[in-house]
Nucleic acid binder design. Structure first.
Lengths: 152, 152
DNA sequence: CAATAAGTATAGCGAAGGCTATAAATCGGC
DNA sequence: GCCGATTTATAGCCTTCGCTATACTTATTG
């Protein structure tokens, strides 16, 4: 009875909503990379006081020009700044996004572990999952974790 | 203390594993579309006895040529067959993949609901999340759900 | 203060997944 | 069985995100 019932309802009705789900998943994907880069740049600055292109590329697992290109996009979107041959920095917006992303990541990992996923697997899967966790789902995760802590 | 500790460990060590996580997430993303199409074609065949390009496109929320192109890729990958101006069909591999994907989707939705995510939100987020749920995480989800049913 | 090493940017390519516009094939009704 | 309507395919085109190769800056060091 889940997704694909009612073949004799107005077809636009159920199909539209399913299409919307896919459309949303596609949109999420478009910002996922930005989120990952921003979070990582934040991490690097916190750790080393600066974020260099080579480090970003290495941690993202991409070639250096790929990282440079992504940084250009971050700048276009107002999330980061950089001067040629100097480091990369986050704008206020970028830093705020990084914080949100980091918090969400932690919650997703914690929830996976809480329902019995091995820690290593949780870290691995969370990297992809987190971007698709909406505000509502995140709130539910955090409520669940709080509840769990209370009962411990 | 979780992901980005130890700035003075061999940098290749921790960075490599983080890069690996991103690399894996990227690979997952590459097959996600195939999974969605295959599942949907399976649904359409189950519902209507056939999967027509126009229906696939509508449900995926894309233009018809986009669906045609995706189907071409499915054929290249050995997951589907089709004859021009006739319907689209799944190979054995495609049908098996569709079944796996459908089952995983259901488990993800069920788990989200089980931890308190509203049903509508669960359906919405699951569409993106499911592709990143590995075998190990899926097994954990199912164990959790089984446990939950036992205690009910 | 060169010369070399290291880091960064630029150029150009490919694949994937969108799109619109248009051509070709099939289907239905007369 | 033909003709218009519907469906599918094809032909471009764009953007994103990978890549390699190469040019250009900055840093280092003899």
């Amino acid at each position: 009875m889940a997704p694909s019932l009612s073949p004799n309802l107005p077809p636009e009705q159920q199909s539209a909503s399913q299409a919307d789900r896919f459309t949303r998943a596609r949109e999420v994907q478009a910002v996922a990379l930005l989120e990952d880069y921003v979070e990582m740049i934040g991490d690097l600055i916190a750790e080393h006081g600066e974020a260099r292109v080579a480090d970003i590329a290495e941690r993202m697992g991409v070639a250096q020009p790929t990282a440079t290109k992504a940084i250009a996009r971050l700048k276009r979107e107002g999330l980061a700044t950089s001067r040629p041959y100097r480091g990369v920095f986050l704008t206020d917006d970028g830093a705020a996004l990084a914080d949100r992303v980091r918090a969400r990541h932690r919650s997703v990992v914690a929830l996976l572990i809480a329902v019995g996923v091995p820690e290593t697997t949780a870290e691995l899967d969370a990297e992809g999952i987190e971007h698709h966790v909406s505000e509502g789902t995140l709130a539910a995760f955090e409520a669940y974790l709080a509840q769990q802590n209370r009962n411990k």
